[in-house]
């Protein structure tokens, strides 16, 4: 019978265990999260300019739903309520930026709650999630409301020739290649925060500058995307769009700077980061050119998220003196 007593004592952990991110940096997790949120301000401004003030409400609902879901789950689990660390806010904000403009508010709230509850908290909360929660939320919405998720609003300053379809859809289904200039500025159809390459690059460079985002992942993704799309472009420039169109259209840049670089769901070794970015872009090119969907950034990042532990394992630096 005394075994039982010992057993109950053993339940108390003797060792503090924690999962990544445990990179030493000059910022606390809380500061990092709010700095990333801050870096998204240019993207939010571009969203308001091109799709109207209403998008602020959509983004707001997404953030509020994420924070409330996080608080509820933490309360049920009896864990410390950490809604001020900004991570739930960031998930909500990112999700709000990758759904179509004027998206239904109820659906936004459901997607955001799903992202936090299923995508993050069920895996154990911040640091334990395998997949990027915002992308999980979007994948859920894509499957739950396929029609609404592919209904795009025209941007505010659209010229007559611009349709409401996204540039990638226009290419996939009607073989129309959008010019590069509107793609950079953002005056094209697309998700709330993905259209303006300029705004995303400003935010991205800010994050790289303050060393929150490692430059290797975005650079590896961009180079890899240009490389693979160039191959097809050289084979048949009429059938396949040019590499710059690939680079500036769809959610690629937003994914490269803000989604793929998530600390928790990306590799921690330098080699791993290069491999990770390279493979994401390879999958993106394959989906865009040969898949049934016009865009593949979301699925590519989610697929590679699943491989991150494996990449980490294979690229883990050998400790000197360690056996083969």
């Amino acid at each position: 019978m005394s075994n039982l007593e010992n057993q109950s004592v053993n339940l108390i952990p003797k060792l503090e265990l924690s999962s990544s991110p445990h990179i030493h940096s000059r910022y606390t997790t809380q500061q990092v999260m709010w700095l990333v949120n801050l870096s998204l301000v240019p993207v939010i401004i571009s969203a308001v300019i091109f799709f109207g003030l209403y998008q602020l409400i959509v983004i707001g609902v997404s953030c509020a739903s994420a924070i409330i879901s996080e608080a509820i789950v933490k309360k049920i689990r009896g864990a410390e309520i950490t809604i001020y660390d900004g991570s739930a806010f960031l998930t909500g904000l990112l999700l709000g930026l990758i759904i179509p403009p004027n998206f239904s508010l109820t659906a936004t709230a459901i997607g955001s709650a799903f992202a936090i509850i299923i995508g993050k908290e069920l895996f154990g909360g911040l640091g334990y999630n395998i997949f990027n929660p915002a992308l999980i939320g979007r994948a859920f919405l894509q499957a739950a409301y396929p029609v609404a998720m592919t209904t795009w609003s025209k941007p505010n300053f659209a010229v007559d020739t611009v349709t409401s379809a996204t540039p990638l859809a226009a290419f996939k289904f009607d073989k129309i290649v959008t010019e590069i200039k509107p793609l950079i500025i953002g005056n094209v159809g697309g998700s709330i925060g993905e259209t303006s390459a300029l705004a995303i690059i400003i935010g991205g460079i800010f994050l790289i500058g303050i060393k929150i985002v490692n430059w290797r992942i975005p650079l590896s993704m961009i180079l890899s995307l240009l490389f693979f799309s160039s191959i097809f472009w050289f084979i048949d420039p009429l059938k396949y769009p040019n590499p710059l169109f690939h680079l500036f259209s769809g959610g690629f840049l937003l994914g490269a700077f803000f989604m793929a670089t998530d600390w928790v769901t990306s590799p921690y070794t330098s080699t791993g980061m290069w491999i990770y970015g390279l493979l994401i872009s390879l999958i993106i090119v394959v989906i865009r050119l040969f898949g049934g969907l016009p865009e593949g950034v979301m699925y590519s990042i989610l697929i590679m998220n699943a491989f991150v532990p494996l990449i980490n394992k294979f690229t883990h630096p050998k400790i000197f003196g360690e056996g083969k």
């Binding site: 109820t106 459901i110 299923i118 499957a143 739950a144 396929p146 609404a148």
Partner: peptide, 15 residues
């Protein structure tokens, strides 16, 4: 109530 199509897709079964 907007039906959640994912629930009658295979993914919904797993969830």
């Amino acid at each position: 109530f907007q039906p959640l199509l994912i629930m009658i897709l295979p993914a919904g079964a797993f969830i």
